[in-house]
């Protein structure tokens, strides 16, 4: 949700800065449908999850990996657009740490408690899925490349308490740069 809010705030800021929503129509985005397919796959995986992570051999993990591979194709095809390099770096960061830790994004029990989302897990056992997300509970000591996992905690009273990763920051910055550049561009003559 926090990433959707970042995209919508970017649109709002561009409008305040004199940009136009109509300029988005001029963005030469190729194969944008790939993002919609990847998103659709993940909606299924996230809202019909396996309760405990079964590792890289799980068909659901394979499907999640396919959704990320689709996104890499999308970024490669649109690499010339401003901000896409940042999005690609963010995807790589998130996908790497997920692959290293059994296919899902690790989050520590402490981070879940700080943000008040402990009700979203059946247990705090290592490998338990966090409902409504791509996360699994994993203690810091058991997490490979911990610094790429969900470590940035924005606790309440922020209206959307959340925990996000370095990769999420890069993806948000890339999307914001693309929207700002596109909406504030001069219309082609």
């Amino acid at each position: 949700m926090i990433l959707a809010v970042a995209v919508l705030i970017a649109v709002g800021i561009a409008l305040v800065r004199g940009g136009s929503l109509k300029r988005l129509a001029d963005v030469p985005l190729q194969a944008g449908w790939i993002a919609l397919v990847a998103f659709g796959l993940q909606v299924y995986l996230i809202y019909f999850p396996e309760p405990v992570n079964q590792g890289l051999s799980s068909p659901r993990v394979a499907l999640l990996a396919i959704s990320y591979l689709l996104l890499f194709i999308l970024v490669a095809r649109n690499r010339a657009l401003p901000g896409m390099a940042l999005v690609g770096a963010g995807l790589l960061a998130n996908f790497s740490v997920m692959l290293l830790n059994g296919g899902y994004m690790p989050i520590t029990p402490e981070a879940l408690e700080q943000v008040g989302h402990t009700r979203k897990v059946m247990s705090m056992e290592p490998g338990a899925r966090v409902m409504g997300s791509k996360d699994i509970v994993l203690p810091r000591a058991a997490t490979l490349a911990w610094w790429l996992s969900d470590i940035f905690v924005v606790p309440p009273p922020f209206p959307l308490p959340t925990v996000f990763s370095f990769g999420d920051v890069l993806i948000a910055l890339g999307a914001i740069r693309l929207i700002q550049t596109a909406m504030r561009a001069a219309r082609p003559a």
């Binding site: 949700m1 926090i2 990433l3 959707a4 970042a6 995209v7 649109v11 988005l24 129509a25 963005v27 985005l29 944008g32 449908w33 993002a35 919609l36 990847a38 998103f39 796959l41 993940q42 909606v43 996230i46 959704s67 990320y68 996104l71 999308l74 999005v87 963010g90 995807l91 998130n94 997920m98 994004m105 989050i107 981070a111 879940l112 943000v115 989302h117 979203k120 966090v130 409504g132 997300s133 791509k134 996360d135 969900d150 959307l160 308490p161 959340t162 925990v163 996000f164 990763s165 990769g167 999420d168 993806i171 948000a172 999307a175 693309l178 929207i179």
Partner: peptide, 25 residues
């Protein structure tokens, strides 16, 4: 609308915060 939806889908599918499309993060 198509470009906006594609960008939103790309950000949501690429990112991995502890909330996906719901209202709890």
């Amino acid at each position: 609308i198509y470009v906006l939806l594609a960008l939103l889908a790309m950000a949501l599918a690429g990112g991995a915060p502890d909330g996906f499309g719901g209202f709890s993060g």
